[in-house]
Amino acid sequence: MNAIDISGLCKQFKGKKMTRVDALKNLDLQIVPGEVFGYLGPNGAGKSTTIKCLMGLIRPTAGTATIMGEPVGSVASRTKVGFLPENPAFYDYLSAEEYLRFVGKTFRMPEALLSRRTDETLKLLELWDARKRPMRGYSKGMVQRVGLAQTMIHDPDLYILDEPMSGLDPIGRALVKEIILDLKKRGKSVFFSTHITDDVEKVCDRVGVIVKGQLEALDSVENIVRKGIEGYIVQTRLGQGEHDSLKGFNITRRNETFVEYFVPVAGFNEFIALAGHHSVEVTLVETKRKDLESFFLEIVRKGNS
């Protein structure tokens, strides 16, 4: 059973002057248990719409979706999820501790477990000192951390996080990445939307890119990274061997001691063979690859055109 199963999901909103806007177009997506999935897309691409459909906050126009086998929109489907909305807001007259206890009680957690989990989660998210203060006095980053804490309190098998890094400083972001990696280790499924490709590259198993309501790319991070290899930067030491034998390759940098060549993937074996044959000492080989951001931008440009 998939953690999330989306099939032919469509969502249309009423636009201005009786127009219709297709926010989601025939989306098919499966998230397997234990997977960390990054959902990328520019603003207005349909990321939050997908998530709101999954959480039953809006109704899809067509298609079906299930969470752990339960149809979305049902109370049962929400018992298995920890959900963080985009720019979360909570009853600000409550303290973080009171809110976590409220969430835990809604999930029908036993009292002893709830108390233990509340303390653990508050400490993990560095909210312990502020736990008794009403949330109306919290900074944006603190509210975001309360949002994460309330997804974790009942230790669900699936986490749906809408822009979890939003509003966090670099330390907060590092903490969230650490938490996601820890969840992955514990076999939990995480589905999160973001704009920040760097976050995806570091924590995700798979990535989906949505543009204008359509899923334009879906692949594992490993594949994307592998496909993105453009060639190698090879450094050789000057004053040794016959460097003229390598003149067919582009020199990217040169100084008194070293020369750096750009070697395309297809020419790598030939370069190494030539270097060996002509006694050229190779001192360094570095992979030159497109990063995930270039991949993302390429997909977005293609989707927009």
């Binding site: 039953g56 906050l57 109370v75 999820v81 909305p85 979360p88 807001a89 009853y91 969430v103």
Partner: peptide, 14 residues
């Protein structure tokens, strides 16, 4: 208005 419903209505609560 204050978007509390996003967090409340996504809990297992009808």
């Amino acid at each position: 208005e204050r978007r509390y419903t996003y967090s409340i209505l996504s809990l297992p609560l009808s």
